[in-house]
Nucleic acid binder design. Sequence first.
DNA 1: TATTGTTATACTCTATAACTATA
DNA 2: TATAGTTATAGAGTATAACAATA
Lengths: 153, 153
Amino acid sequence: MPTRKTVSGLHHHLGYWLRTVSNAVSRRFARRVEREGVTVAEWVFLRVLYDADWVAPSRLAAHLGMTRGAISKLADRLLEKALVRWEANPDDGRAHRLALTPAGRTLVPRLARIADANDASFFGALSPGERRRVETLLRKIAAAHELRNLPID
Amino acid sequence: MPTRKTVSGLHHHLGYWLRTVSNAVSRRFARRVEREGVTVAEWVFLRVLYDADWVAPSRLAAHLGMTRGAISKLADRLLEKALVRWEANPDDGRAHRLALTPAGRTLVPRLARIADANDASFFGALSPGERRRVETLLRKIAAAHELRNLPID
DNA sequence: TATTGTTATACTCTATAACTATA
DNA sequence: TATAGTTATAGAGTATAACAATA
């Protein structure tokens, strides 16, 4: 058995490349949606609500892989921006539920178009087939680790 | 021309999948190196110094895609942990330069092995060929956007 | 004047844990 | 006792800008 002599470099790790590219695309997207007054995390939050009418904070936390505390803070900001509304759940005195305001519902499609444009331009270096291949493989990894991405039922 | 009726969902964007998987792998790696007393950003910083003897903070900033202020803060923490040392550059009164301490030099190979193991287990769901394909495509994107990854000369 | 680096400030994100109230 | 949610605290990352020293 040979003595280990090599110390692997940053670029030997797939995780490094993933982080480098992911940070760059998220940073660019953040710049663009900042003009609409929201952050990337807020976009994700709003987009989930767009499909789901009323959602409990705990569902959002599980869905987005965040703690309930983090969801509370995000929800506070979105309430202040009047993009989200908040209700007590009439069926359970402990529970609350969240939904988009009309302003929030108007904003989401605009944010979605920004996301479309950002994705298209950032991954423009890849052919459509290459893009599909990357997506397929990323989904495979996500599935293997049960990363949250399921639609709220 | 049809009226736009569709609002694309989160999972329609490659950037979303990239961010989901990248955050998961980085979070896992962060947990593991935390036991060695360093963060992910510190690992990257230390690994660059490992190959480079003396490096100016401004070179590190350009190389890592960070601001000089961020580098200063990182360097401060690593100085406190006695993993890095700091000198004035004798050739230029404005400039400084950084290098690993013996403790830092001892730590890097250990961190590299943690990175190896983390990468292998996280991407174990992919075949070696699939892993190579993802890496190739990510490198292609990084090159197209000139994301920093070049060795310090 | 431009460059190197530090410092101050501020905001986002994350995580833990203490806490309130309901069940 | 357990669950839903909020709040407090703290650390890490990021960005901008003001600043000192030197070129």
